[in-house]
Computed example of a mutant assay.
Amino acid sequence: MSTSPRATLEQLRAVNQTAAFNRWCGIEVTAAEPGRAEISMPFKRDTGQYAGFLHAGLVGALIDTACGYAAATVAGRVLASHYSVNCLRPAVGERFSARARVIKAGRSQVFTACELFAHDAEGERLVATGETILSVVGDEASA
């Protein structure tokens, strides 16, 4: 089994641009180093729910994406096999950033954790946390 190369910041940015959903959301990869990744996204009216908060589905998507990118920095290609999200308060802000880190990387699974922050003129507030388990995907799994 061959292993995928570890992703760099430039590679994550390139992969991010190939995802139509990420482009629609305005997700950008702002930082990456081995075992860590950070993404950000501006709030758009289209991403809100009925009360004007960031939709919980997007909260989960930001956590899942940031964790996947953090895992890719140590394991190459990965796919989420499980993730959980804890919404701590309404996600209200002008911009959101998700900061993910690898907790443990194994040969077949990578465990990660993430914090999601809302940003506005008053600063940043923690609005959600999450964890993922990602499966390492070998090059031969592209079927």
Rank of each mutant, 00 (worst) to 15 (best):
I103C: 03
A61C: 09
L88W: 03
H55N: 03
A80V: 07
T73G: 01
G48W: 12
C67N: 12
R99T: 08
V110H: 00
E122W: 08
S97L: 09
T65P: 01
C67S: 11
F111E: 12
T129V: 10
C87G: 12
S81W: 08
Y50L: 15
R99M: 04
I63C: 14
H55W: 05
S135Y: 01
T132A: 15
D64F: 07
E38Q: 13
A128V: 09
S97Q: 10
I133D: 13
V127I: 15
E94R: 10
Q49V: 02
F43S: 08
I63Y: 06
A75N: 05
V92D: 15
V85C: 04
T132H: 10
V102T: 12
L54Q: 04
V127A: 01
H82F: 14
A121I: 11
L62E: 00
I39L: 11
Q49M: 00
Y69V: 04
A66Y: 06
K44F: 12
D46Y: 06
R107M: 10
E94P: 03
T112I: 03
L58S: 02
F43D: 12
G60M: 00
S84M: 13
V127S: 03
A72V: 04
A56G: 15
F96H: 01
T47W: 11
G106D: 00
V92C: 12
Y83H: 09
Y50P: 08
S81F: 14
Y69K: 08
A113M: 08
G57I: 13
P90R: 00
Y83D: 00
V92P: 05
A121V: 09
Q49P: 04
N86Y: 12
H119P: 01
G106R: 05
T47Y: 14
V102D: 06
E94K: 11
R77I: 11
R99E: 05
G130D: 00
G48V: 05
T73W: 04
S40K: 13
L62Q: 03
L58D: 06
A61S: 15
I39T: 08
T132D: 10
S40E: 15
L62K: 03
V127N: 07
L116M: 02
V127P: 01
L88C: 00
A121N: 12
E124Y: 12
V110I: 09
V59A: 04
A61N: 10
G48A: 09
T73E: 04
V78L: 04
K104R: 15
C114V: 12
S135D: 06
D120F: 01
R101T: 10
R99Y: 07
A75T: 03
A91V: 02
H82S: 15
D120H: 05
F111A: 11
C87T: 07
I39C: 09
F53W: 10
R89Q: 13
L54F: 05
T47H: 12
A72Y: 14
I63W: 08
S40G: 10
S97K: 14
G130Y: 03
